[in-house]
Simulated scan of single mutants.
Amino acid sequence: MTLTTDLEKLPFVQPVSPIIYLVGGPGEGRFPHCNSFLLRGDRTILIDAGIGVQRIEAIDRALRIDTLVVSHPHPDHILAWHALSDRELLLPAQTPDSVFDLNQLGRRFVEGPEDAAYWTHMVKKWLDLHPMRPPDRRFADGETIDFGPIQLQAIHAPGHLIDHYCFMETGSRTLFSIDIDFTGFGPWYGNPESDLCLFRQSVAMLQTLAFERICTSHKAPIEAADAGQAFCDYLAAFDRHQQLILALCRKGMDLAAMLRESPFYRNRMSDATFQRIFETQMIRKNIELLITGGWVVEKKGQYLALDCPPTVA
Rank of each mutant, 00 (worst) to 15 (best):
L84Q: 07
S85I: 02
D86F: 00
R87W: 06
R87H: 10
L89F: 13
L89G: 08
L89V: 14
L90G: 11
A93Y: 13
A93K: 15
Q94R: 08
T95D: 03
T95A: 13
D97E: 15
D97Y: 07
S98A: 14
D101F: 12
D101E: 12
L102I: 08
Q104Y: 00
L105V: 03
G106R: 08
F109M: 14
G112P: 09
G112H: 08
G112E: 11
P113W: 14
E114W: 11
E114K: 11
A117N: 06
Y118R: 04
W119P: 04
T120M: 06
T120Q: 13
T120I: 01
M122A: 11
W126N: 10
L127P: 05
D128W: 06
L129E: 04
H130C: 10
H130Y: 10
M132K: 00
M132H: 00
M132W: 02
M132S: 02
P134Q: 08
F139Q: 11
G142D: 08
G142L: 10
G142R: 09
E143T: 03
T144W: 05
I145G: 06
D146Y: 05
P149D: 10
L152N: 11
L152F: 12
L152Y: 11
A154R: 12
A154W: 09
P158E: 13
P158W: 07
G159P: 08
L161K: 03
H164C: 02
Y165I: 02
Y165F: 15
C166K: 04
C166T: 03
F167T: 03
M168P: 12
E169P: 00
